[in-house]
Write a protein that binds this DNA or RNA. Sequence first.
DNA 1: ATTCTCACA
DNA 2: TGTGAGAA
Length: 117
Amino acid sequence: MVRRELRRDLAVLPMSVVRELTGLSDRQIRYYDQQGLIEPHRGAGKQRRFSLDDVDRLLEIADYLDAGYSISEIHEVDAKKQRREAEKVDPDDVNMRHMLADELLKIGRFNNGQRKF
DNA sequence: ATTCTCACA
DNA sequence: TGTGAGAA
């Protein structure tokens, strides 16, 4: 039996669902899209279709923003992330970066309580 | 009914 | 970022 799992990379979620799942306004979601932070697929009528990965990405973006990062700074982080992804193919380094990123976000959240968790 | 783009008394 | 207009 092939292990049939949930495909978090399939873009099948409409705005309404993503809005609920992230707590973001569709205005914000479209804005992050324009800024190139996410590239959801398009369906009939150019309507955006998001994947669960996109939802995670959106939450990540919201966290960075709450932590005080600017859109451009988030792009910097992405760029830096890709460069290392290209060079060092060290799996341990990848995990370490994720851990550091999480810590940065936690610190950011404590430095400005705006998020309504 | 929903979502999209564009523009701002 | 919000909001409203007009189209799809």
